[in-house]
């Protein structure tokens, strides 16, 4: 299977500030990939690199086997719904569809019209008069009707109310089935991604902390509780992601491929939220704890 996105030592610098460093990823096709991390972690930068809106400073990136944004053909293969789902305020819904039809050779007009109709958007309404949810749906329609193989969405639901958020994700998941899309979407909210993603990338402080299939990640991470002990004395194949201690007890979150046999530990399952939070507050980074919003 070909990779939908492959990055090797990818980095992007703005002036002196590295927005993304040493990012190495290999995402197979057919996934709904969640890119999660606090605000300012470099999510938008990574997504912009993937759709070719930014040239990398270091390393390389290929998307669907091509250089991002390099040619009209490459642009046609990748759909992008930008942060805050921008639309032309002065243009009507119908004009947005016309824009899509004019600028995309693979435009699926029937799909676009069907979606707009089902969403109950009047073709004559100006995009500037739409609600946030409707605007997001219009932007999603533009992204879907160009018939991409990969759809990238940057915080698409961050500004939406819970109902609009649910409706947006419903439409997105339906399209993913229907069009056999690969999807990459970012969010600073774990709850947005919990249901829809089956592949996860945690990005903190410009670095990819962990990436992989969600199920495997959840299966290889465990919460260990037991009598207090030094995390450094764990077996070599158990990597401590986070640790907290009281005077008697230690609670560790470890990653390991092997089962845990030590009877002193009570082994607990962790949720996606636990996993993400653990990586965001990794011991190495405790001096600068990023703020993660966990909302429902």
């Amino acid at each position: 299977m070909t990779a939908v996105l492959r990055a090797e030592g990818l980095g992007k610098r703005y002036g002196k500030h590295w927005a993304l460093t040493d990012c190495t990823l290999d995402i197979p096709t057919g996934h709904v990939v969640g890119l999660v991390g606090p605000n300012g972690a470099g999510k938008t930068t990574l997504l912009n690199l993937a759709c070719g809106q930014l040239p990398p400073t270091a390393g390389g990136i290929t998307v669907l086997g091509g250089r991002p944004g390099g040619s009209p053909a490459q642009l046609a293969k990748v759909g992008y719904v930008a942060q805050d789902t921008p639309t032309y305020a002065g243009l009507s819904v119908a004009e947005h569809l016309k824009l899509g039809a004019r600028l995309n050779p693979g435009w699926d007009d029937a799909l676009a019209r069907h979606r707009i109709e089902r969403l109950g958007l009047r073709p004559s309404s100006r995009a500037g008069k739409l609600s946030g949810g409707q605007r997001a749906q219009l932007a999603l329609t533009l992204g879907l009707a160009k018939r991409p193989e990969l759809l990238i969405l940057d915080e698409p639901v961050a500004a939406l109310d819970p109902l609009a958020r649910r409706e947006f994700l419903q439409g997105l998941m339906e399209a993913a089935v229907e069009q056999q899309l690969s999807v990459v979407l970012s969010s600073h909210l774990v709850s947005d991604l919990e249901r829809v993603c089956d592949y996860l990338i945690v990005l903190v402080d410009s670095k990819v902390q962990v990436a992989g299939e969600l199920e495997k990640l959840l299966a290889t991470h465990h919460r260990l509780t037991g009598p207090r002990r030094d995390p450094a004395r764990l077996p070599a194949d158990q990597h401590v992601i986070s640790a907290s201690h009281t005077d008697r007890q230690s609670t560790l979150l470890v990653r390991t491929q092997a089962p845990i046999h030590d009877p002193a530990w009570t082994v607990g399952q962790i949720s996606l939220e636990d996993l993400v939070l653990a990586y965001m507050s990794k011991p190495a980074d405790t001096h600068r704890r990023p703020t993660l919003e966990v909302q429902r």
Binding site: Q53, G79, K146
Partner: peptide, 17 residues
Amino acid sequence: EAGTHRLVWNQSITRTR
């Protein structure tokens, strides 16, 4: 200012064109 460059530059048309 409106962010629409990110909409239009992601259609199947290079920004040079």
